[in-house]
Design a protein around this nucleic acid. Structure first.
Length: 535
RNA sequence: GGCCCCAUCGUCUAGCGGUCUAGGACGCUGGCCUCUCACGCCGGAAACAUGGGUUCGAGUCCCAUUGGGGUCACCA
């Protein structure tokens, strides 16, 4: 009954016509995320999703969005989220990449239920003090540690006639390709070794026999039916000559072994799904539900890259973004709650309860750093003050702005609603330190305030402030306004001089509060110092 | 080039045949608030790629065109 939802019939017409060899994979577990909770519990398998990055460098935001969606889906249905490391390309694997991924997931608060154990990490030389010991029943969770398993499956496929050994050298393949191109044919492996019998002892790869003229389709959880009338692919290598598997073999084997129910991955994988489907078929395994996610592009409309600046999560953290805000923002690229809802600020719990594959868009999206900043500012403002203070402290320390807890706490509420990222905090409060000020003196003279007038304001203000019985915010407020009107000035222009004299800057937290926090002595000495500076 | 995916304001999106003279958010912009800067509040400009169908009726369904993107490795 519920099968209808994802068996989206919109592509049906296109597909119906091909009668020969038509085959489609049923994906009955589609109903997993549309059945009411109680019903589901009795009939459904556990939802198990995974994030399977290859440790070839730094993941960007798009990668973590994929991980987050997979995590949300698992949590939504009380399932498990696993981390698997796809390091089958020895040459491209870079040391430290696994650690980066694990630490970033932790920063985002995406808990991994199953993943590499400490021993697995150690065996790869990827061990560090705070390394978590994930583990799980389906390990190892690092592909380079699962080589015998892939070999076993490859042998099985050869025995059953779905695959064969090929000892063609790269040079031979190259020559073949050149000849094909000269003849203006589609280049690709001809299948030379299909009918030969290459012994296991000679150096070889294992190739999967791709059927030609075969219709194939499946129900993508996001796009509905995707169909191929013929398989356009050549016999593809599934096991390399060095004994490592190719991606296609490794994913299929691992997703099966690890009982993955839903595969969420980037749309760049859509084209290779037929190979995976064929592999599942040959192995007699039931394929998981596939959901191919739209890509996230940079503001330039091109793929997210390291040069996109804020696209690297670790960089966002260093720049003072909050994990909650980043996750909230990133989840909005390609996903919306739907049902006419306008909501776009979600707690983690709300996201879990509202997330669904149906809400994911087909179209690619653009990462907008400006909106992220806005949202981060919103999250910062919504933080309890104490939380804001403790999160700001590392940034103060890094910027060598040395303030006591009490001093910073006194000004914090005013800073909190003025920053979008935490790195903006230190420059906003560094005037409270003992450091000598660099004053923007030239900004002082404007709107009817010349050097003489400025001196007058400062001198009078110093006098009045010194005489104040109590150096409180309201007292300072009244006193300073009094000075302004006494000198025939509006508060605005009058306070510019004072602000620069005491803080050195034109933009600061509110003046009276700043003065109160600084204390009378320092305010007075700074004002007097400035008077001497005016020519 | 073959195959596949995609197409609503600049950007993220709502919209699942009539309630769309298309709603929200960021950004932009006019104003209010105001000691600067922010916050907050009120207002504005800004989009259904094009052409055919289907239908009493299409942003919503179908086809084509155009334009983007992906993929065709002993990379993932």
């Amino acid at each position: 009954m519920c099968d209808e939802v994802h068996a989206a019939p919109r592509k049906e017409g296109k597909f119906r016509g091909s009668s020969r060899g038509s085959y489609s994979f049923a994906t009955p577990r589609v109903m997993v995320y549309i059945l009411p909770f109680k019903e589901r519990k009795q009939t459904m398998k556990e939802v198990r999703t995974r994030f399977a990055p290859s440790p070839t460098g730094f993941q960007h935001l798009g990668g973590f969005r994929t991980a987050f969606f997979a995590w949300l889906l698992a949590k939504r249905y009380g399932g498990k989220f696993l981390l698997r490391v796809e390091d089958t390309d020895q040459e491209r694997s870079v040391p430290g990449a696994i650690r980066f991924i694990i630490e970033e997931l932790a920063w985002f608060g995406i808990q991994v239920d199953e993943g590499p154990s400490r021993a697995e990490l150690k065996s790869l030389g990827e061990d560090w003090d705070e390394a978590p010991n994930l583990g799980g029943e389906c390990g190892p969770y690092i592909q380079s540690l699962r080589l015998p398993r892939y070999k076993e499956i490859a042998e099985q496929l050869i025995e059953k006639g779905f695959a064969y050994r090929c000892d063609c050298t790269p040079e031979m393949l190259e020559r073949e390709r050149n000849e094909q191109m000269a003849r203006k044919e589609q280049p690709g492996y001809s299948g030379y070794c299909r009918t030969r019998s290459v012994g296991a002892e000679t150096k070889h790869v294992v190739r999967f026999k791709m059927p030609q003229r075969r219709a194939l389709s499946f129900n993508d959880a996001i796009r509905g039916r995707v169909a191929w009338e013929t398989i356009p692919l050549r016999d593809t290598v599934i096991l390399k000559s060095d004994g490592f598997p190719m991606y296609h073999l490794a994913v299929v084997v691992d997703d099966h072994d690890m009982k993955i129910s839903h595969v969420l991955r980037g749309i760049e994988w859509l084209s290779s799904t037929p190979i995976h489907l064929l592999l599942y078929e040959a192995l007699g395994w039931e394929p998981p539900v596939f959901a191919h996610l739209p890509v996230v592009n940079g503001p330039d409309g091109k793929k997210l890259s390291k040069r996109t600046g804020a696209a690297k999560s670790s960089e966002l953290r260093e720049r003072g973004f909050l994990a909650e805000a980043v996750l909230n923002y990133v989840s909005l690229i390609g996903w919306a709650p739907g049902e006419g809802s306008d909501q776009e600020i979600f707690s983690r719990e709300e996201l879990i309860s509202k997330f669904s594959l149906e809400g994911i868009n087909e179209a690619s999206g653009v990462f907008d750093p400006v909106k992220l900043e806005w949202m981060n500012g919103l999250y910062i403002r919504n933080l309890p003050v104490e939380e804001f203070i403790s999160r700001s402290k590392p940034f103060l320390k890094l910027a060598e702005v040395d303030l006591s807890h009490d001093v910073f706490a006194a000004i914090a509420p005013h800073v909190q609603e003025r920053v979008k990222v935490l790195t903006e905090v230190p420059p906003m409060v560094d005037f409270l330190c003992e450091r000598p000020l660099q004053r923007q003196m030239d900004a002082m003279f404007q709107k009817g305030v010349d050097a003489a007038k400025a001196k007058e304001i400062l001198a009078r203000a110093a006098q009045v402030l010194e005489a104040l019985p109590e150096f409180s915010i309201t007292a300072i407020d009244q006193a300073l306004r009094g000075v302004a009107s006494e000198l025939g000035l509006k508060p605005g222009p009058a306070f510019v001089a004072l602000r620069i004299a005491v803080t050195g800057k034109t933009v600061t937290p509110p003046l009276f509060e700043s003065f109160a926090v600084l204390g009378r002595d320092r305010v007075l000495s700074r004002i007097r110092e400035t008077i001497g500076l005016i020519a």
